[in-house]
Amino acid sequence: MTRWIAGLFALLAAAAPAAARDLTVVAGGGALQDHMRRVLFEPFARANNITVRDQSYDYNIGPIRAMVQARNVTWDVVMVEAPDLRQGCDDGIFERIDWTVVPRDRFLPGGTTECGAGALGWGVAVFFDERRTPQGPATYAEFWDVQRFPGRRALRMGARMTLEIALLSDGVAAGDVYRVLATAEGQRRAFARLDALRPHLMFWRGGQQPFDWVGSGEVAYAVGFVGRAANAIRSGQPLALRWDTLLYAYDYWAVVRGSPHRDAAMRLIAHLTAEEPLRELARVWPINPVTAAVARDPAIRAANPLMMTNFIDRGLHINTEFWLDNGTDLEQRFTAWLNR
């Protein structure tokens, strides 16, 4: 019996977290994070004589909420999507950014919030295979025009971005989209537009899907992540990307509330958003930086013609507040529409 109890304690002790934990930064993984580790995290670790660990996650902030509530915070700096950042900030899951450590003026407009410092931009736009369909839609109105551009289309599954696209296709100006979408009439209009295109529509969930579908010819024209499209084009795929149809948003670096490394986390964020490190990163990976000096640098723009930040004046900035206010309602309506 005593052996059993001793064994149990040994097991529990082995599983207990180490007393002194290293500074941990968490992002979306993949090749980009590998580059970030080499170009951003490790130099910071060396310069400050500490260890910086990194992990990846699926942008689900459930675990972050749980760890803040359990007061067992194992992540320090996290890359968070805009709505999660906003919600989390209101709920006290993220620390307020220390703007004396991170200069707030270095970011593009809309690149900072109370709890977040702009990390990278992302966006969606229309793309298609130039070899199969040399002529493709250049606007959302044309995306809807199945006479001129026959073939199946692919949109992202979900109300977010899809409803804005529906309104844009109906002639609503970019500046008015959210005002219209906030009204019952506007929402009805958006769903009616989706109904019109429905027989030709496929919805994707995973980011790679629209690219697989366009590549195999299953879909003629699709809306997909511009980062992936840019990578595909650079690796030789004959894709045409229509920047006039850009919808974009920023992801932010945030600090988890209750982190024991709060000061170091703030300094890390200052480093992650500083000019020089980001220039280094831009040299090895086509990023969309939110730090203004890098985003507007003509040399980097020239070297990265497919950098999204070259085109944001043509695009629609996805309105986080709108989706926080209306997201639940509209997503439910979208699910109902999908199931009809």
């Binding site: 919600q87 900030c89 209101d90 709920d91 006290g92 906030a182 507040e321 926080l324 206010d325 209306n326 639940t328 309602d329």
Partner: peptide, 20 residues
């Protein structure tokens, strides 16, 4: 004190627009 999030979400669920 950043305790407003839960209430905002609760009311917004019943009536969109309440959060704003």
């Amino acid at each position: 004190e950043r305790r407003l999030g839960l209430l905002a979400q609760r009311l917004n669920f019943e009536q969109p627009g309440m959060r704003a």
